[in-house]
Amino acid sequence: MSGLLSARSRAGLIHLLLAAAAVIVIIPVVWTVAAGFRTQISLLMGELLFTPVGSNFAEVLFSKTSDFLLNYRNSLIVGISSTAICIAIATLAAWSLHRMRWPGWIVHVFLAWTLIFHMIPPVALAGAWYTMARAVGLDNTFTGLVLAHATLNLPMAIWLMGVSVRDVPKELEEAAFIDGANMPAVLWHVVLPIIAPGIAATAILAFVFSWNEFAVALTLTMKQTATVPVAIAKFAQDFEIQYTQMAASAALSILPALVLLLIAQRYIVKGLTQGAIK
């Protein structure tokens, strides 16, 4: 259909479009990170050229009132555990609902219920969960927040994993089963390799949502368990928005998360695909 040259110029065009989009996406991000290296007055004056300062990062990381490293650790604990729990539960549930012989109404009612749950405004949810957590002593604990975040992301994860699971050819599962594989073996060796990209994408989103979740994290935590968004929100004070420190902490919050996600994505996809035996 297309010669070497036109294929090449088509690839060039694609790269051009992608690069243009990348520039639009990245300018505000670069601007945010750069704001972390500026003085507040330089930022407020809208100066384009500035002498970088490291005081914002120093303040965020090491000042006496800032617990950023602690918040960071907390966010990692909550983000990773809640994502792992959420994805495991959602994958099993999606597979169960779409591939096992549940009565149709159970599937529909449950899926609709998760979606309705997802629509509850955070104000309403946070208060109710606080009361429950306080009653059983799970307020101000990681367990409470991990369960809360896993549940918050469960509807999305179940629906998304549902799409992936339905892509798995039924004949493949059945063939494996006729070959005598038991349930976990079919899941591990047949289903997971096929839905690996879906799992990776869903896991990234679940992690990011947990990483940035504010309303529930605020109510269920105190000083020792507070997460990064709770810490960052403190920079938007009444009477003073500390833009530069906010930007510095946002930069600190983005970059490792990004690295983690890229590694995680490769690892998840690779790890799961390797389960398949050709």
Partner: peptide
């Protein structure tokens, strides 16, 4: 490309508000 296109959702909502406001 993938890394760049993911970037915006990594930023907490409150920071997005503050940054775009500026």
């Amino acid at each position: 490309y993938r890394a760049i296109f993911i970037l915006p959702i990594l930023i907490p909502g409150i920071v997005i508000g503050a940054i775009w406001k500026l």
